[in-house]
Simulated scan of single mutants.
Amino acid sequence: MTSIRIALVGVGKIARDQHVPAIAGQEGVELVAACSRNATLEGVASFTDFDEMLRAMPEIDAVSLCTPPTARLDYALKAFAAGKHVILEKPPAATLAEIEPLVRLAAEAKRTLFATWHSRFADAVAPARDWLANARIERATVTWKEDVRHWHPGQDWIWEPGGLGVFDPGINALSIVTAILPRPIHLKAADLEFPSNRATPIAARLSFADLAGVPVEAEFDWRQTGPQTWDVDVVADKGHLKISKGGAVLSIDGRTVVEGRDNEYPGIYRRFAELARDNRSDVDLTPLTLVADAFMLGRRASVEAFV
């Protein structure tokens, strides 16, 4: 079977740390090109201009967009016009309105649009979803705290409009929660903390509920040093379910039942290969919608400057 030839657009930390090794280790996909204004990848053709890359390498089958979200729409439009499949790193776009025309264009072009949520491919997520499918849930709590200086060193775009701030990692938590809970949730209230010199929040507290009134509380913070916290706790009639380490570990009533590895990005490209073979798309905007709602409903507080 011929591999799907992929060009990686945006060669930053996430591309180097996750996308490159994931593509290299996944059957059915092959990295053949990279496009970045100021970086290259060894072993593949590298370009600084997206249009030039498409002209020079018509054999490219798909582009994987790892740029900041504000840049993705233009690249995706050009990719579909050139007959390419499109993979979107999370979050899939800077705004919800940008995605609808891309879904339509993908269908018209008979190409794949894949809005990825890498945390959903963590080893604990599917077993947690299955365990909760027939449970009566009482409450859920999300604690997602990490050190922004470690995960986004020198990346100013995350503090600009469209960069999401603490919701850049927080949306990973929401992608897990919306994948494992049997009923959809909606936002009721939010408190957002913005550094006095930044345009996006550094911390957030959010209150959700499903239509039956089951509460889901979430706390996101980018100021935690030392050990990082990426936990989802669900209390149900069947017991206490806990997802930890960002989705790698699942425990039930304190007993570890899944202790996984870092399989998220290989899972993304495995799923993409399945979709592209049939020219199907997979675009779930639920996590991005919840984040957009937080910016709409959230009470804003100014906190100390981030430097």
Rank of each mutant, 00 (worst) to 15 (best):
T2K: 05
R5W: 07
I6L: 13
I6W: 09
L8E: 01
G12K: 01
Q18H: 15
I23T: 03
G28A: 14
V29C: 11
E30K: 08
V32E: 02
A34V: 14
C35N: 02
R37E: 14
T40M: 10
L41T: 15
G43P: 12
A45Y: 08
T48R: 02
F50M: 07
D51P: 02
E52V: 12
R55K: 03
A56N: 09
P58R: 03
A62G: 07
V63A: 05
C66A: 08
P68H: 11
P69V: 12
P69L: 11
P69E: 09
A71H: 08
L73N: 09
Y75R: 09
A76R: 10
K78G: 10
F80P: 05
A82F: 04
V86R: 01
I87G: 09
E89H: 11
P92I: 08
P92M: 07
A94N: 09
T95D: 15
E98M: 12
I99H: 10
I99E: 06
V103R: 13
R104C: 01
L105P: 04
K110P: 14
A122H: 01
A126S: 12
A128C: 11
A128H: 08
D130I: 15
W131M: 10
A133C: 01
A133V: 04
R136H: 07
I137D: 04
R139A: 13
A140I: 05
A140H: 04
A140M: 09
T141V: 15
V142M: 13
W144H: 08
E146I: 02
V148A: 08
W151F: 14
W151N: 09
H152C: 11
P153T: 14
P153D: 15
W157L: 07
I158S: 12
L164R: 15
L164Q: 13
G165W: 13
F167M: 13
F167E: 06
D168S: 14
G170H: 08
G170A: 10
I171C: 09
I171S: 10
N172P: 04
L174N: 04
S175K: 03
V177L: 02
A179T: 06
L181F: 07
P184V: 05
P184F: 02
H186K: 13
H186W: 06
S196H: 12
T200G: 04
I202Y: 12
L211V: 08
A212Q: 10
V214W: 02
V216M: 03
A218W: 00
E219A: 13
F220H: 11
F220Y: 15
R223W: 00
T225C: 05
W230Y: 12
D237M: 00
S244W: 01
K245V: 06
K245G: 00
G247H: 00
G247K: 00
A248D: 03
I252L: 05
V257N: 00
V258N: 01
E259M: 00
R261M: 10
P266M: 00
R270M: 03
A273I: 02
E274Y: 03
L275Q: 06
R277A: 09
S281H: 02
V291F: 06
A294E: 06
F295S: 05
G298F: 04
R299N: 05
R300Q: 03
R300A: 06
A301T: 14
S302Y: 10
F306Q: 08
